[in-house]
């Protein structure tokens, strides 16, 4: 991997709808996201945060402009290339999107098995380790239906992190959670990112998270309205438990 920024966005425009209903949602966005940092996307509802995030995360076809992700151009990329790129990313959605017929462990295993069959014993160990890290070691065999909202979101975090992704995208990961569990989830993300030098891009409204960020980008009506780099973001110190 070259040393350049993992995400470079140039002249990005995006449109929704067809014909009369066609409407521009993203207007000439230019961005470089630095490696190993926590970048936060803010802005009012409907300002285009999710759209930008999903465009950078290979979840939506790039229509106009350029997104270079981990050195690869996404505009015009083949489905096969997109599939390969997605495997190097971790996504955490607003809804946990856990598969409700799979246990916590099995959901996490899905994050590993995407890389191939692998060694089942090693995979089981990795899954159990990451579930311990998110404080759910004792809930490993629970189905999502038997977990609380915060616990489910932590399983989703574990699933996204288990394969050591190079970039983590998180779209309002705390929106559906109460204050306490939201805080837990974000601190966990921050700490794990810190430990592994992972690049994290997170959409959030949550003010308490801002102080953790290295950089805060604000979108308004599909354009970048503000871009602030925080020289001294709050660091999570090792003694702070994440469970």
């Amino acid at each position: 991997m070259s040393g350049g920024p993992p995400i470079v966005v140039r002249g990005l425009n995006h449109f929704f709808g067809h014909g009369e209903a066609r409407k521009q949602a993203i207007w000439d966005v230019n961005l470089e996201i630095a490696r190993g940092k926590l970048t936060i996307l803010m802005g009012p509802s409907g300002s285009g945060k999710t759209t930008v995030l999903t465009l950078m995360g290979c979840l939506r076809d790039v229509q106009e402009g350029s997104v270079r992700l981990l050195g690869a151009e996404l505009n015009g990329a083949s489905e096969a290339d997109l599939v390969q790129l997605r495997r190097r990313l971790g996504f955490i959605f607003q809804a946990h999107n856990l598969h409700d017929s799979l246990t916590a462990t099995q959901n996490v295993l899905m994050g590993l098995q995407v890389h191939g069959k692998g060694d089942p014993v090693k995979q089981a160990k990795a899954a159990s380790h990451i579930l311990d890290l998110v404080g759910l070691g004792d809930r490993a065999d629970y189905l999502p239906g038997n977990l609380s909202g915060g616990q489910k979101q932590r399983v989703a975090v574990a699933r996204a992190l288990v394969s050591n992704p190079e970039i983590i995208f998180a779209d309002e990961p705390t929106a559906a959670l109460d204050k306490q569990s939201g805080q837990t989830v974000v601190q966990m993300l921050k700490q794990l990112g810190q430990d592994r030098n992972t690049t994290t891009v997170m959409v959030t409204h949550d003010n308490r998270i801002l102080e953790l960020a290295d950089r805060i980008i604000t979108l308004e009506e599909g354009r970048i309205a503000k871009d602030v780099i925080q020289e001294k973001p709050l660091q999570i110190v090792q003694s702070q438990s994440v469970s």
């Binding site: 995360g57 979840l59 489905e79 096969a80 599939v83 390969q84 790129l85 997605r86 495997r87 190097r88 990313l89 996504f91 959605f93 809804a95 999107n97 856990l98 598969h99 409700d100 899905m110 994050g111 995407v114 699933r159």
Partner: peptide, 15 residues
């Protein structure tokens, strides 16, 4: 199960 499948697709599972 479209949501779950979409999540799998986002994770890098292919057709």
């Amino acid at each position: 199960h479209l949501k779950e499948y979409a999540t799998f697709k986002a994770m890098g599972y292919g057709q």
